[in-house]
Design a protein around this nucleic acid. Structure first.
Lengths: 300, 300
DNA sequence: TAAAAATACTCCATAGGTATTTTAT
DNA sequence: ATAAAATACCTATGGAGTATTTTTA
C-alpha cells in the first residue's frame, strides 16, 4: 500500500548490487520477496525504477535519482534515531536555568562551566530571576532548574544545597565601624540599612528581619534597590550599610568594605531546585553537577 | 520489529495533537492501534518519547528532538518520491549528447536552445565526437543522443533526420572558379581537394568519393584536417577546395567563398539517433524536439 | 542451456479492529 | 465521575518462504 522504509532499504540494496538474488541475500530475505517488494514500490511510485531482463538489472533515470534521495531519507532516519537516543541519555538537549544574585556571584559559574565543558550538546539558557519568581517558573516549566535562596520545600521539587554562607556586613569604606575586624549584629542597631526591595528580595529580607528582631531591633531601612549592584552603589555612596553573603568579600566593590558578623548568626543557603518528575535527562545530568560537594566559594 | 515510516507518521501526528484519540482519528486508525505503534517505536528506540497520564500527553526531550528529525525524514521521503516521478516524466534528468560539425553548425543549436528553455530540469552534457565514434558511444551508453551524418540504420537505434542539405563547393576567395555563380561537380575534376581526415570524417569522405567517381574522377586530396575550421583555413590559404554542406554559406569564413553545386547531386542528411529501448524519459522528451519538422537551416 | 527474474501458492506474523479495563484528575 | 490511555483478544491483510515457470543472452 504505502511506501515504507523497508522499500527504501530494499531498493537501495538492489540499486547497489544490480542483482536481485545477491541483494536479497544481503537483506536476509528470499529473492521472490525482494522482487515483489520492488514491484510494489514501483507501483506506488507510479514509475519504473529498474529495467530488468533475466540477464541485466539496470537503473532507470528515475531509479538513479530515487536511490540517491532514498539513501538521504534512510540516513535522516538514522540521524533521528541517534539524536533521540542521545537526547534520552542527556547527551543533547536544552536546559533553562534561573538564578539570583547570590548564585551568580557564588557557586553557579563553577558548576556551569564544568557542566558545559562535559556536556557540550546541551544548550543552556540562563535567566536572571529573583527567588520567588523562580519558584513559580519551576512549576510552570519556564525554567528547568532554579538557583535560589533556600530552603525550598515543596511537593514535587527536589533541591540540593550548593552554598552555605555566613553573613557579612557591608559598609561605606570610611564608616567608623569599618575600622573593626568583625562586628556583632547588635552593633548595627542604630545604623541606616540599604536592602533589596521587598517584592524581589522577599526571602532574604524576611530572614534579615527575623535576625534583627532576635538581636532586639527593627532595621531602619532608608533605601531599597532591586539589584545587588544597586545596593552596593548606595552603600558606597554612604547612604547606609547592608548585609550580604560572604561571597561579596571576593568581589572588588569600590567604596565599600565587608566585615564578618561574629558570632556567625546564620548560614544562608543557596539551593538548586528542579521538578522531581522531570523527564529531562539534561536536568538529571545537571543535577549531578549541582550536587557535587565542594563548590569552592564559601568554604575557606 | 524495525522502525518504519508508519511509526514516524504516527508519532508526528501524536506529537502534534498530544492526544492519542484525536491523532488516531487524523490517521484513520483506532486509538489502541496508535498506542501500540508508539509503544513499539519507543521500544525500538530504547527510550521514551512521551510522558503520558490519562489526562496529559507530553513530549520528552528525546521526543521533541525525534519529531523534528522524523519530520525531516518524512519530508525527505516525499522529496525522493516527487523527484523519482519528475525523473520518470522527464522533467528532471541528464542527457549526454554527441555531435559532429555539421550538427553544431546546423540544426543543433536551435533544437538545443528550445529544449533547454522548456526543460530546465534536464542537465545537458555535450560532447564533440565524429560520426563513427558516436555510433559506438550510443551503443555503449556513453551518449544518449548523437547528431551525426546519416543514414544510420542499426538494430535498436532510432533516428530522425534533422537536416537535409545540398553540397556546396568551398573555394579560396580569389580562385578562378569563384567568379561563377554555381559549379558542376565535373568542373572540379582537376582541382586539388582539402578534406576531413579518413579516420574521423569517414562517412563524409566515402560519400564524396562515390560522388566524384560518379562524375568520372577520383579527387586529388592534397591536404587533410580533423576539424572543419582546419579545412577552411587550408582552403583560405589556397591549398585547394573542399565540399561542405550548405550551412557553411551562413558562416563567415574569411578568405573562402562557397558556390552551390548544380545540379544538386546529393542531399547530406544529418540525423539525431538514440537507443530505441532507452528508458530515459529525458531522451524521449528530447527526441520530440529533434523530430519537430522545421529546423530553420537548409530549407530556403 | 543456464542463470536470474517472475509467478504461484502457502503460511504466519503483525497491524489493526472491538470491547474492556485502568488511571488520573 | 469521566475522559483518555492501556490492555486483552480477535481478525485478516500482506510480507515472506518454497517450489516452479518464464525469459534472454
Amino acid at each position: 500500500m504505502s511506501i515504507e522504509l523497508r522499500h527504501l532499504r530494499y531498493f537501495a540494496a538492489v540499486a547497489e548490487e544490480l542483482h536481485f538474488h545477491r541483494a536479497a541475500e544481503r537483506l536476509n530475505i528470499a529473492q521472490p520477496a525482494l522482487s515483489r517488494a520492488i514491484r510494489s514500490l514501483e507501483g506506488d511510485l507510479g514509475c519504473a525504477l529498474l529495467t530488468r531482463t533475466t540477464r541485466r538489472v539496470a537503473l532507470t533515470d528515475a531509479g538513479r535519482i530515487f536511490v540517491k534521495e532514498a539513501r538521504a531519507a534512510l540516513h535522516q532516519v538514522d540521524v533521528a534515531i541517534a539524536l533521540a537516543r542521545d537526547a534520552a541519555d542527556g547527551k543533547i538537549g536544552h536546559l533553562a536555568i534561573g538564578y539570583m544574585d547570590f548564585a551568580i556571584n557564588g557557586p553557579l559559574p563553577h558548576i556551569l562551566s564544568e557542566f558545559r565543558i562535559e556536556n557540550p550538546g546541551i544548550a543552556v539558557e540562563l535567566t536572571h530571576l529573583w527567588t520567588e519568581r523562580q519558584r513559580t517558573a519551576l512549576v510552570t516549566g519556564e525554567i528547568d532548574v532554579g538557583f535560589m535562596i533556600g530552603p525550598f520545600d515543596a511537593a514535587g521539587i527536589t533541591t540540593t544545597v550548593v552554598a552555605r554562607e555566613n553573613l557579612v556586613a557591608v559598609l561605606p569604606e570610611h564608616h567608623p565601624l569599618a575600622s573593626r575586624d568583625s562586628l556583632r549584629l547588635e552593633d548595627l542597631r542604630t545604623e541606616p540599612f540599604v536592602l533589596g526591595s521587598q517584592d524581589t528580595w522577599g526571602p532574604f529580607r524576611r530572614l534579615i528581619g527575623e535576625l534583627c528582631l532576635d538581636a532586639g531591633f527593627v532595621p531602619d531601612v532608608v533605601q531599597e534597590s532591586h539589584s545587588s549592584d544597586g545596593i552596593f552603589d548606595l552603600v558606597a555612596a554612604g547612604m547606609g550599610m547592608t548585609l550580604y553573603v560572604e561571597t561579596a568579600r571576593h568581589l572588588s566593590l569600590r567604596g565599600t568594605v565587608s566585615r564578618p558578623l561574629t558570632p556567625a548568626i546564620a548560614q544562608i543557603e543557596t539551593v538548586a531546585a528542579w521538578r522531581t518528575d522531570s523527564t529531562s535527562a539534561a536536568v538529571h545530568r545537571f543535577a549531578e553537577y549541582a550536587s557535587r560537594p565542594p563548590h569552592g566559594a564559601g568554604h575557606n
